[in-house]
Amino acid sequence: MEVLGFLFRWSHVLFGITWIGMLYYFNFVQGGYFKQASPEGLADAKAKLAPSALWWFRWGAMGTFLTGVIMLYTVPSAMNNYIYIGSIFGTLMFLNVWLVIWPNQQVALGMKDGDAAAAGAKALLASRHNVLFSAPMVFCMLASGHGGAGGWAALDWSAPSMLAMLAIIALLEINALKGKQGPLTTVNGVIGSSLVLTAVMVAVLNIL
């Protein structure tokens, strides 16, 4: 079981690197290139590069999610507030990929019929929120292996800290689906917002 647990953790990290790496590529690199590319270059990238990158992106998300679920139920670990908050972040990010980003990107790239501009905007909004969620999610992955007091304590869904974090996450996910980018519009803005959200999470889980 110890070897099996290690293999699941190893696979989880590899899938996660693939997924989050592609997420950062789309938001930090490809988006900027699309704005500056020539019409010919943009058309070529949409036809060849983006579909390939999206394949690795969505299946990296799938692998990360499935290995994470398996680890929750089969690999002994410290089941504290952080591991569950991190799991919620990861699950929402996974659902955003498969239910929002990927379907809308197919329309935006001309792979399916529809309003390309509207679909692209929906995909971008969800993608930006996935970047927002990424730093606190990774923090939770690392923090979940520790024990102690406050935010490191065993899970308690009724604790004010957990209820507050669930409310914050719910509001952010609603904004990812129906809201606006706000400070997430720029690369610096979304990176800064992700770090701020991480700090807020740590404060909430350790103070309330």
Score class of each variant (00 low, 15 high):
residue 23 L to K: 03
residue 49 L to R: 12
residue 118 A to Y: 02
residue 157 W to G: 05
residue 139 F to V: 09
residue 14 L to H: 05
residue 82 Y to L: 00
residue 137 M to H: 02
residue 62 M to S: 11
residue 29 V to D: 07
residue 123 A to V: 06
residue 9 R to Y: 12
residue 131 V to A: 10
residue 69 V to A: 11
residue 109 L to H: 08
residue 116 A to N: 06
residue 76 P to G: 09
residue 91 T to H: 05
residue 64 T to F: 12
residue 60 G to C: 09
residue 71 M to I: 14
residue 187 V to Q: 12
residue 15 F to N: 10
residue 139 F to H: 07
residue 97 V to E: 13
residue 177 L to V: 04
residue 107 V to L: 07
residue 100 V to Y: 08
residue 70 I to N: 01
residue 81 N to F: 11
residue 105 Q to K: 14
residue 42 L to Q: 12
residue 58 R to A: 08
residue 153 A to N: 08
residue 165 M to F: 08
residue 129 H to I: 02
residue 130 N to F: 03
residue 200 V to C: 02
residue 184 L to H: 05
residue 105 Q to E: 15
residue 64 T to P: 01
residue 11 S to K: 03
residue 32 G to E: 09
residue 166 L to C: 05
residue 183 P to T: 05
residue 96 N to H: 14
residue 2 E to H: 13
residue 23 L to C: 02
residue 31 G to Q: 10
residue 18 T to K: 04
residue 81 N to V: 02
residue 197 L to F: 10
residue 103 P to D: 13
residue 74 T to K: 06
residue 76 P to S: 11
residue 49 L to V: 15
residue 175 N to A: 04
residue 138 V to L: 14
residue 162 M to A: 06
residue 97 V to Q: 11
residue 131 V to K: 01
residue 89 F to D: 00
residue 59 W to A: 05
residue 175 N to F: 00
residue 201 M to T: 15
residue 81 N to S: 13
residue 10 W to G: 00
residue 29 V to C: 06
residue 200 V to E: 01
residue 38 S to A: 11
residue 77 S to H: 15
residue 35 K to H: 11
residue 56 W to P: 00
residue 23 L to Q: 08
residue 149 A to D: 15
residue 19 W to G: 00
residue 112 K to W: 07
residue 118 A to Q: 12
residue 36 Q to T: 13
residue 13 V to P: 02
residue 159 A to N: 07
residue 77 S to F: 11
residue 47 A to L: 14
residue 119 A to W: 12
residue 43 A to F: 01
residue 24 Y to W: 15
residue 182 G to V: 06
residue 157 W to A: 09
residue 192 G to C: 06
residue 149 A to V: 10
residue 122 K to F: 06
residue 201 M to C: 13
residue 112 K to P: 04
residue 151 G to I: 04
residue 81 N to K: 04
residue 184 L to I: 07
residue 177 L to P: 00
residue 42 L to D: 12
residue 188 N to H: 10
residue 46 K to V: 04
residue 86 G to R: 08
residue 36 Q to M: 12
